[in-house]
């Protein structure tokens, strides 16, 4: 391969690769500017010298993914009429019917623990319950359980408004949770979606709007 290929392989700028070659530090053939490198030799060199290059950390989440839509697909969309916030959370968790009883109990406890610390009602009729720390044991990918409340409930939200949409967020890791939150934040800035939520849509309609938002971003 040539200098450009070598630079990409080693995760370093081309000028650095040229300098290393000139200093006799790097296995190569020929002389500048016709330097040639061999992949296996470079890989061995990188391993032996511990050069990991300055390539930026690989993004843990591919921004192309529509995380929100995927989360909803792996989760659930439904409605119910619970009598208080705690029951609402229980309903939202139970919507994830593929999870064993033990899992749903553990998740409900974790979410309630968080809810007791501070209300997740963020205003405009939406609540965002989630566990305080990721429940890695049961959750391997981000999942959203959307529960529409037929009668809005008091959720001690910041703006004092009752909540009619519960978005239960479950993530396998902190970075994934942050990313999911960011997507939710973006979605909730879309006034059309907020309007749509008030009408307790079905999964298809909800996903359609979510996908549109993602495409426009």
């Amino acid at each position: 391969m040539d200098i450009t290929g070598a630079a990409r392989l080693l995760g370093s700028p081309e000028s650095t690769v040229v300098r290393w070659a000139r200093q006799g530090l790097l296995p190569c053939r020929g002389s500048y500017p016709e330097l040639r490198f061999e992949r296996s030799a470079l890989e061995r060199w990188a391993r032996v010298t511990g050069m990991r290059g300055r390539a930026g950390q690989a993004a843990r989440v591919d921004y192309q993914d529509d995380l929100l839509a995927a989360g909803i697909l792996r989760g659930a969309v439904g409605s119910a009429q619970p009598t208080d916030a705690a029951k609402a959370i229980g309903f939202a968790v139970n919507q994830l019917s593929d999870l064993p009883e033990e899992a749903r109990q553990e998740i409900t406890d974790a979410v309630m623990e968080r809810e007791r610390m501070a209300s997740t009602g963020l205003g405009r009729g939406v609540a965002l319950p989630h566990p305080r720390r990721p429940v890695e044991r049961w959750i391997k990918e981000p999942r959203l359980s959307v529960l529409f409340l037929e009668e809005s409930l008091d959720w001690a939200a910041i703006d004092g408004q009752p909540v009619s949409t519960v978005l239960l967020l479950l993530s396998p890791s902190v970075p994934m949770h942050l990313e999911l939150l960011a997507r939710v934040s973006m979605a909730l800035h879309d006034s059309t979606l907020v309007e749509l939520l008030r009408s307790a849509p079905d999964a298809v309609a909800l996903l359609e709007r979510v996908r549109v938002i993602h495409r426009e971003d």
Binding site: H130, I158, V174
Partner: peptide, 24 residues
């Protein structure tokens, strides 16, 4: 930098705890 986007959303910032998003 890991929570930058959330900080810009006052609603979400109010319901997200440091304990949830910190690196343990």
């Amino acid at each position: 930098s890991s929570v930058r986007e959330l900080l810009l959303d006052p609603e979400l910032a109010r319901v997200t705890l440091v304990g949830t998003v910190m690196q343990e």
